[in-house]
Computed example of a mutant assay.
Amino acid sequence: MQRAKIDISKVIPNEGQLEGLPRNPRLIKDEKFRKLCRSIQSLPEMTEARDILVYPYNGSYVVIGGNMRLQAYKYLGWTEVPCCILPENMPVEKLRQMLIQDNNPFGENDWDALANEWDSLELEEWGFDVWQEPKEDKQLKKPKQQEETGEEEVRKADFFAMMLGDRIYDSNNEFDVPSLLFDGQPTSGLLLPFAGWGSDTRAKKGISTYHFYVEDYRFTNIWNNPISVLDSGCTELVEPNLSLFDTTPIAYGLQQIYMKRWIARFWQECGAKIYVDLNVAQKFYKYNCLGIPDGYDAFATRGYTDRQEYLKLEIQIAREISGKDNPNMIVYGGGEAIRELCLQNNVLYVEQFMANRVKQIKKGGENG
């Protein structure tokens, strides 16, 4: 067998062209297909390590294993794909066996291990079926309202996929950091429920506003797949808080700011409302203002008990950009000292829910 990268136009799906070899029995549609595409985009190394299994046929190559991936590669605009070329003299009985074994998921899932040792949010983003749905009675027809809702979700997801692409947004600065849309900011008052991305996966579908004041590893994949956040159904978001420290080089920091502002602009284009993230090291304050239009009035930051002076500076930045003495600003966590500072400056303080929950558990459990 030979490994080679082959022009994608010469790789064709198995549709029963070979005598004695039925067409591939597997299908992939709608959300499953979109998850496969997102998985390929976020982990191209997997593609390099896993060839499509092909058989030479009339100057082309028929796929024996990897039909679904071939569809995804074509959709994503690939021009060539890594293939393992089977010998032309291979018996059709062997090809039939390979086709079925490639589609046969041997073994079973250890659901306890998946639940306790893996992040269900990440598993879902990677295309893994987290929950086992009960088998549906084929004689039962879904209510019309459910059918319409499903079609609407498919159209919405298709719109998100169309919006993604390779895009350069308009910018108000020399570094081409994208400008946020003025009409894409939340109105005064925090829309609840409010939670950190990836911090409570069980509540995922019920969250109205997400923030990213959590460990970076929980959301680093968003740059490759910003649609995953919108798929949750949230309507308002704080920009991703990509960590920037005083020791971070300026060049790298600019890249981080570009990425978070590009993601925020993309979310706005898809209809979400965005709070500007002000939680960066002091050395990046001026760079973090790139792309924020004058008069924009929706901000968020993280509160720290031992960094009250930083919070005062960030509140002042919000005032200068918004032109208001009392800007629309959220401060997440920090304890009583930060709460008092927020009251004095008339900005909204939001308790760090997960930290409180841990404290309650340590004290002997929650009431209720």
Rank of each mutant, 00 (worst) to 15 (best):
I28H: 01
R96T: 07
F194A: 00
L43H: 11
E148Y: 03
R155S: 03
E269Q: 12
E124F: 05
G365Q: 07
E148M: 12
Y55P: 00
N24R: 04
N172G: 13
K141M: 05
W223C: 08
N172Y: 15
Q132S: 14
G184V: 03
I321V: 13
P293W: 12
I6G: 01
E320P: 01
Q139C: 04
K35H: 14
L237I: 09
E133I: 04
M163C: 13
L348P: 06
P327W: 10
I207E: 03
K286G: 04
P44C: 13
G335H: 08
M1F: 14
W262Y: 15
I40Y: 09
P25T: 04
K156Q: 09
L290S: 11
G333H: 09
S243H: 14
P178H: 07
G77T: 07
D277H: 12
P226C: 10
N326C: 12
I207V: 15
P134C: 03
I12V: 15
K363Q: 14
A161L: 10
D51N: 11
W111S: 12
N116Y: 07
L341A: 07
Y285T: 06
V54A: 00
N58S: 09
A318N: 11
P226D: 04
A281W: 13
K5C: 12
F212S: 01
A49N: 06
E269S: 13
F212Y: 13
A72G: 02
K94N: 15
E152C: 08
D30P: 09
R3Y: 15
T220I: 11
V214Y: 09
K359V: 11
F159S: 10
R96V: 12
Q282K: 15
T79D: 13
L140H: 13
Q41R: 14
N109I: 14
R261C: 05
K324T: 11
R23K: 13
E117C: 09
P240I: 00
N225F: 12
C84H: 11
R218P: 02
R302N: 12
G198V: 01
L99I: 01
D166Q: 11
L242C: 08
V229K: 02
F175H: 11
F160R: 07
N67Q: 04
K35S: 08
G364M: 15
Q256W: 08
V54G: 00
K156D: 02
R23T: 13
V347N: 08
R302D: 01
I292N: 01
Q255I: 12
G334K: 06
L76M: 05
K135T: 06
H211N: 06
E236K: 14
E336R: 04
G291N: 06
G184P: 05
R69Y: 13
P82T: 04
L343W: 09
R69G: 07
K283Y: 10
C289K: 15
E152L: 13
I263L: 04
V229G: 05
Q282T: 15
F128N: 04
A49T: 02
T235Q: 08
D7G: 00
D110V: 05
R265T: 07
V238N: 04
Q97I: 05
D176E: 15
D297V: 05
S9D: 09
E136M: 10
Y287Q: 14
S39E: 08
G323S: 09
L290G: 08
P56C: 00
K324F: 07
I257A: 07
G335T: 06
S179D: 09
I64C: 00
E152T: 14
D183H: 02
E236F: 07
D216F: 14
G253A: 03
R265S: 06
R302W: 10
A115I: 01
L36A: 09
R339W: 08
P22C: 01
L230T: 01
